[in-house]
Design a protein around this nucleic acid. Structure first.
Lengths: 234, 234
DNA sequence: TCAAAAGTGTTCACAGTACACCCATGC
DNA sequence: GCATGGGTGTACTGTGAACACTTTTGA
């Protein structure tokens, strides 16, 4: 262990893995990099960490600049520090994953950075190690969402249970039994049934629900088992 | 987003939260800081990241320097980057938690850093934000160990099921039913029964087991439910 | 022979699953 | 009235929890 003054200093960046859901597919937001090298290539949303901000601050700032949205669900994913991950200069990146409701986002599109949504299954080549980062984020999303009530964050404030089921099915690439999904979900008591129905999906219409925010916040660390099979050893 | 050259560079450190188990209590290894400021105060095991190593490399190096042990279980915990967390100069720390078998460690004590084990429930004051870091590590240990076969890493290669149960009970500060613990554990097929017994714990003696490494490595991502109640919503 | 801890058996309640069935509505 | 998706009922299975019981052996 040596003195502070003898130590090397490094560049610090944040990169955000922004997931969105448009009702059909799980999507990832990427931007065209605005500066050299690799200007115009696809990249995660990111930026350097400033002198007067933490990594969390920087990630929130970057997200706000890009989406115009505050208070998004955001969570630290992993720090990437391989010595050659950035080809220009060694840069440590602290990554965050964020969940956003695409509808709300499209109301305030910020075109300046040329953001684009790609289906999670058809991503373009990304610069540096960003593809690897996205892989890790996908894994973590699946992991967490199987255990905790999380995916609500990808839907509008009002949503139907079939919509939510569809989202889960997209995330896990599989089909769930609607009866069981319904019951499990309602048994958590996290949802409040509203009076009106969504008539777009079917003739009968499905009731809208909204999250009971109090219970939701109290239970972010509770366990959930909406994804059959995930909880068993086998 | 601005050019690389205009960005600020920061000090970059790693800190390791090293858990150990002596058969009675869950313990944390801390050292007396060897340089100013706060020389002699208790601190997590850590060090600065060098120019030619990743954070993972640095953490492994630091662990090896301190314990003399290679190949310890090690996992990235979280990056801490609050602007005032280090009172000397802004330093971003990537933290790792490690699990070690105290027996094996004591065979090769490295006294140079004055390491000490403290019971997880009676920790001394630690410098900077290290107390907060340890809290997070404890949470994560409990979280992961409830879901994955992990705590084996804290025991010698040969151990008995009652020993393992005792470890779980220490980690979760509660008592488990031995019958159910036994069955659940064996149902994972992760353990191989050995021919000899440990006669220290009881007159009858408890059979030693060892981990089936092949199955263990294949199932690091599998789910486990040794901790009653953790998996239910309630 | 008795105490103490290892290990096994048994029962019960309930969670998870599969799948049949009923419901509301637009066409 | 009938096709379509929303929603409910139900029966079966397996797991988890509680606890009684048997086994082994040193003192």
């Amino acid at each position: 262990m040596r003195r502070y003054s003898q130590q090397k200093r490094f560049l610090f960046a944040v990169d955000c893995i922004i997931f969105g859901f448009d009702g059909q597919e799980l999507k990832l937001m990427v931007i065209q990099r605005g500066f050299e090298p690799f200007r115009g290539k696809w990249s995660l949303v990111g930026g350097f960490v400033g002198e007067k901000e933490s990594a969390e601050d920087a990630a929130a700032r970057v997200l706000k600049e890009l989406t115009g949205l505050d208070g998004l669900y955001m969570e630290q994913l992993h720090a990437f520090s391989a010595i050659d991950r950035d080809t220009v200069e060694r840069t440590v990146s602290i990554t965050f994953f964020a969940l956003i409701d695409i509808q709300q986002y499209t109301q305030q599109i910020i075109e300046h950075y040329h953001p684009a949504w790609f289906s999670i299954n058809e991503l373009p080549d990304l610069i540096f190690d960003h593809t690897k980062i996205v892989e890790l984020a996908k894994e973590k999303l699946r992991y967490k969402a199987a255990l905790h009530p999380l995916l609500f964050e990808l839907l509008p404030a009002k949503f139907t249970i079939p919509q939510l089921q569809n989202l889960y099915q997209c995330v896990y690439n599989t089909g769930f039994d609607k009866g069981n999904f319904n019951r499990k979900l309602l048994s958590t008591k996290l949802l409040m049934k509203l009076k009106d129905k969504d008539k777009l999906g079917s003739k009968k219409g499905a009731f809208y629900y909204k999250v009971d925010t109090k219970k939701y916040n109290a239970s972010l660390n509770s366990f959930l088992n909406l994804v059959p099979g995930q909880n068993s050893w086998k």
